[in-house]
Computed example of a mutant assay.
Amino acid sequence: MSHKLTTPAAVAATLVALLAAAPASAADYVQDTGSTLVFATKYDGEVFTGTFPGFSTKLSFDPANLASGKLDVTIPLAGAKTGNDDRDATLRGSDFFNVAKFAQARYRATGFRSLGGDQYAADGTLELRGVSKPVTLTFTWTPGTAPVLAGKATVKRLAFGVGGGDWSDTATIPDEVAVSTKVVFKPAR
């Protein structure tokens, strides 16, 4: 004789049993206030830094199940700020970010690697100026009620056509741009 799920209580009991047996899923987070995204490079040997206000991050992360993780960062490029209005205008222009055609950049990673301790790596893809290239973000994870991801990456600007043409001389502006971020998270609702 087969057992049929004929009562709501039987259906509920079966669902609870199935959910309890399912592996724990990664926690889902969204970016909270206090987060920063910074880039640093040089111009004629002088270091300058800039920020991307308004960037947005979604994260699915469980240190016990790194393969299930996901990271999705949207970066509005028009708001890039370096503390120099002329430089900011140049960055928005067609030689650099070309914000009229490419309003945002996006970084996405699926799955993470452990580097030991609280250190991890995301081997993701950066889409910038219509070009998609692999970029690795190494980061630390500080759990808690407001967990923090603190990460660093190196982006080769010329691979994305940023600062090409007259600006392609790496003696004037290095090809490698250092990017760092501190993202404070709250649970996604």
Rank of each mutant, 00 (worst) to 15 (best):
T82Q: 00
T82K: 00
D85F: 11
D85C: 12
D86V: 09
R87G: 01
D88W: 11
A89W: 13
R92Y: 08
R92K: 04
R92I: 09
G93Q: 09
S94H: 13
F96I: 00
F96V: 00
F96Q: 01
F97C: 04
F97R: 05
N98A: 14
N98Y: 14
A100N: 15
A100T: 14
K101D: 12
K101C: 03
F102Y: 14
F102A: 02
F102R: 04
A103I: 01
Q104F: 04
Q104N: 04
Q104I: 03
Q104M: 05
A105H: 00
R106P: 03
R106Y: 08
R106C: 14
R108Y: 09
R108T: 15
A109I: 12
T110S: 15
G111Q: 09
G111R: 07
F112G: 01
R113F: 07
R113Y: 14
S114A: 06
S114V: 10
L115Y: 08
G116Q: 01
G116C: 01
G117H: 02
D118T: 13
D118F: 08
Q119R: 14
Q119G: 08
Q119W: 09
Y120V: 01
Y120W: 00
A122Q: 10
A122K: 13
D123P: 10
D123E: 11
D123H: 11
D123R: 05
G124L: 05
G124Y: 06
T125V: 11
L126I: 14
E127D: 12
L128Y: 10
V131E: 13
V131K: 07
K133E: 11
K133S: 08
K133D: 14
K133R: 13
P134S: 00
V135F: 02
T136E: 11
T136G: 10
L137V: 07
F139R: 05
T140Y: 07
W141Y: 11
T142D: 02
T142V: 09
P143S: 02
A146Q: 13
P147T: 02
P147F: 05
V148S: 12
L149T: 09
L149A: 11
A150K: 13
A150Q: 15
A150C: 02
G151L: 02
G151V: 08
G151P: 07
K152G: 13
T154Y: 15
T154M: 06
V155L: 07
V155I: 07
V155A: 06
R157A: 06
R157F: 05
L158Y: 10
L158E: 10
A159S: 12
A159L: 06
A159N: 05
F160L: 06
G161N: 03
G161C: 04
G161A: 06
V162A: 03
V162W: 00
V162H: 06
G163Y: 03
G165V: 10
D166R: 06
D166Q: 08
W167S: 08
S168I: 04
T170E: 14
A171N: 13
T172K: 10
I173F: 07
I173H: 04
P174H: 01
E176D: 06
V177A: 03
A178I: 13
V179L: 12
V179I: 07
S180G: 03
T181K: 05
T181S: 15
